[in-house]
Amino acid sequence: MKRGQYVVIGLGRFGSSLAKELIELGYEVLGLDKDEEAVDEMSEMLTHVVAADSTDEEVLRSLGIRNFDCAVVAIGDDIQASVLTVILLKDIGVKQVVAKALSELHGKVLEKIGADRVIFPERDMGIRVAHQLVSPNLLDYIELSRDYTIAELQVPKRLCGRSLKDLDPRARYGCSVVAINKKNSVIIAPTAEDTLDDQDVMVVIGTNEQIESFENAVIG
């Protein structure tokens, strides 16, 4: 099979949204759900859609799931089915298995049984919204790991014309500006001489504390 083929198991709100976005990005997607109504709704949007039980090993093998580049287990409300599906996917040799967790405990179980990546859509979205509420200049916030975060900070008018050398975020705050989104272009890995304009967006990487210090001292 060609690279870039995904199977999304569980076509609820998260799974269907993920599957449609993968299609928009140009990938082939097989959607699988035991709910025939959910399958019917997605039948014309995805490459293929199948109504089937993902905890049935024979079904997974007959669909050639092991040949897909990545399987996403997006089952929304049945932890047992989620766990069994991940076990079967790993057992039949799927290269990468990504699983949605409903709770921290569910996530730990998924990690223990071999999921390559565990995601917490509701928790992560809650964290991002909370940060956006308390930091007016923060446009987006993504936790990369326990130690590092990447954030988008909007440049206020008073910094217009200032260079990154003037701000010196690395030396003063420990964080780094890795890109500047301008009105009609994006500067990747900007130099110290690059200047800021009103309404530019700085993409900053560092710890939560470093980014907060930088935002409070320079942006806020």
Results as ranks from 00 to 15, higher is better:
Tyr6Phe: 14
Val8Pro: 03
Ile9Glu: 05
Ile9Cys: 04
Gly12Ser: 11
Gly15Val: 03
Ser16Glu: 13
Leu18Val: 14
Lys20Phe: 00
Glu21His: 06
Leu22Asp: 13
Glu24Asn: 12
Glu24Arg: 06
Gly26Leu: 01
Glu28Lys: 09
Leu30Phe: 03
Gly31Asn: 10
Glu36Met: 04
Glu36Trp: 01
Val39Ala: 08
Asp40His: 05
Glu44Arg: 06
Leu46Tyr: 11
Thr47Arg: 08
Val50Ile: 09
Ala51Thr: 10
Ala52Cys: 10
Ser54Met: 04
Glu57Trp: 00
Glu57Asn: 04
Arg61Gln: 06
Ser62Met: 07
Gly64Val: 01
Phe68Ser: 02
Asp69Gly: 12
Cys70Thr: 11
Ala71Tyr: 03
Ala71Asn: 01
Ala71Phe: 03
Val72Arg: 00
Val72Thr: 01
Ala74Phe: 06
Asp78Val: 00
Gln80Phe: 09
Thr85Glu: 12
Ile87Asn: 10
Lys90Cys: 03
Asp91Ser: 09
Asp91His: 08
Val97Cys: 06
Ser103Tyr: 05
Leu105Asn: 14
Ile113Pro: 15
Asp116Lys: 02
Phe120Arg: 15
Phe120Lys: 14
Arg123Phe: 05
Asp124Ser: 14
Gly126Asn: 07
Gly126Pro: 13
Val129Asp: 13
His131Met: 12
Leu144Lys: 11
Ser145Tyr: 07
Arg146Gly: 15
Asp147Gln: 13
Ile150Thr: 12
Ala151Phe: 08
Leu153Arg: 11
Leu153Asp: 14
Val155Pro: 15
Pro156Thr: 06
Leu159Met: 10
Cys160Ala: 13
Asp168Lys: 07
Arg172Gln: 13
Gly174Cys: 07
Val178Tyr: 02
Ala179Asp: 10
Ile180Trp: 08
Lys182Trp: 08
Lys182Pro: 10
Pro190Ser: 04
Ala192Gly: 12
Asp194Ile: 03
Asp197Glu: 15
Gln199Glu: 15
Val201His: 13
Val203Asn: 09
Gly206Ile: 02
Thr207Glu: 11
Glu209Gln: 14
Gln210Lys: 07
Glu212Tyr: 00
Ser213Tyr: 05
Ala217Asn: 13
Val218Met: 09
Ile219Lys: 14
